[in-house]
Amino acid sequence: MELPELDNLDKKLLNLTQENFPLVPEPFAELAKQLNVTEEEVIRRLKSLKEQGTIKHLGAVFDSGKLGYYGILCTVKVPPNMLDQVTAVINSYPEVTHNYLRNHPYNIWFTLQAKTPEKLIALLEKIKQKTGLKEIISLPATHTFKIKVNFNLAEEEG
């Protein structure tokens, strides 16, 4: 994968906007002040970081549990010749937010979110029916020790 070139200003901006986005009426002017550049420069940089995909999302990230949603992690053993078909079925549901292929006999790992535990069970049953898979292991979280997906970007010296 070709990684984009990021200069020190990009890195500082990424660190600040991940950790300390100013919740003020003019946040980009505030960031500009902290970085000693113009507001236009901050907006221009953020636009290009978004266009190249370095920033995936700028805004609020919600705690699904606090919004009343139930989530589970699921895993299933899928034979290699069924991977494409099973992936298409699983990914077709908007309630499936993540799906990964991993190097283990339990090779498919996906997350599901729904308004009630009953809906989660019903969705899993539908996935089983459509794919023909008999056993999907579901793993609800009973305690969250950490969610912190900030990536601190080291700035270069000089």
Binding site: L3, L14, Q52, I55, L58, G59, A60, D63, V149
Partner: peptide
């Protein structure tokens, strides 16, 4: 109240290395 877990940029971790 924790309803918003955080506010700001979410970075594509692959793209930053």
């Amino acid at each position: 109240r924790g309803v918003i877990r955080r506010f700001g940029a979410t970075v594509n971790h692959q793209q930053v290395g």
